[in-house]
Design a protein around this nucleic acid. Structure first.
Ligand SMILES: [Zn+2]
Ligand SMILES: [Zn+2]
Ligand SMILES: [Zn+2]
Ligand SMILES: [Zn+2]
Lengths: 186, 186
DNA sequence: TCTATGTATGTAATATAATAACATGTCAAG
DNA sequence: CTTGACATGTTATTATATTACATACATAGA
């Protein structure tokens, strides 16, 4: 897939859903305006391919939870997800939501944002990653950022102490580009 | 958790409490056996100096909460802290613990470990820092590690996306040196 | 086909974590 | 002494998450 400049992806993806916009999967465009239905459909398709290959099942509840998180395009609490499920005829007890979310998280389709006690759809399922999350304190947008440099720094420093890192939680609270501007000129 | 009581008894023979051991404040020694009463007393003294200079008050509850976290030498939940406070005659309702913990966290004397929904005493109060936490999944020991390299990598990558980082949560789950060994040879 | 088995879902009950709202106490400045 | 700021105590409620058990569903042998 050809990668577009920031300007292009911002404008083209809004006007032309059929373009090869990488949308949320592209860190540089994660905070930019774009047609998110495109990203969502793409991610969902990839998820289905992955579960087929992996021998696990994307059952109706699980699939619907993933869809909900993709549609919302932000982090949702387990009980928010549960409310929607219940409204659609699924069970209305916490384990229904938590089990689906846990399954999706274990299989890399959603991430847990500890700072928010919430869950967000992963925008690059299959690409094994322990991403960094950028959370805008103003508009609550959440974006995934490549974690390689951060993880390298972390792992190296920990190894010096003899500590073996297995999993990491890296979350940054701050202001997204849009909110940065609006705060500078209110 | 049993780990540090072992360490405490062992450290008396290993190191001299009156030496200038940096104990937990030294990342390289954070997981090593040492006389932790030394670190605790030192940190508490520094905390008192800092509040005096800062115009805030280290009241009995607040001081006791800090002591408890220093004595325990691991992350404690707010309700664990509360139980101890109640047993000592302080209030026994959640806000008592949360208020003290919030105060201590705001003033840099304790850190919140989001992964554990818990709080741990800071081992270098006053030194403004947003540390990295290393959490042993086996013995629950928690150590602070310098975050400079990690934060640099994080801030740079975020800046490329136009995101202004204000606060970070960086926590690594894994095995501490001691548990690494015991897991290798069970 | 029919059952056995594992897995997924539904539900009730409970545990754990955090906050809101308001009353009371403490202490120093005026 | 009064006042105002801050700290603590208490009640109640909300939010988040898990345990335990019952039921449904798939699907692999017999
Ligand atoms: Zn998107
Ligand atoms: Zn924003
Ligand atoms: Zn120590
Ligand atoms: Zn350990």
């Amino acid at each position: 897939m050809a990668r577009m400049s920031d300007a292009d992806s911002a404008s083209a993806s809004v006007s032309d859903p059929e373009s090869d916009c990488r949308g949320c999967a592209d860190p540089a465009a994660a905070f930019a305006a774009h047609d998110h239905r495109h990203c969502a459909g793409d991610v969902l398709a990839r998820a289905e391919a992955l579960v087929a290959a992996g021998g696990v099942r994307l059952t109706p509840v699980r699939r619907r939870v993933l869809e909900i998180l993709l549609e919302e395009h932000r982090a949702l609490g387990a009980y928010d997800v549960l409310k929607r499920l219940a409204a659609e005829g699924f069970g209305n007890q916490p384990p229904v939501a938590y089990r689906a979310l846990d399954f999706l998280a274990e299989n890399g389709f959603v991430h847990r944002i500890r700072r928010l006690n919430a869950f967000a759809a992963c925008m690059h399922p299959g690409e094994d990653h322990a991403p960094v999350f950028l959370i805008c304190r103003n508009c609550n947008a959440v974006a995934e950022m490549p974690a390689a440099p951060v993880r390298a720094a972390l792992g190296a420093a920990a190894a010096d102490l003899g500590f073996a890192v297995e999993r990491t939680t890296v979350e940054a609270m701050g202001l997204c580009p849009a909110c940065c501007k609006s705060e500078a000129a209110p």
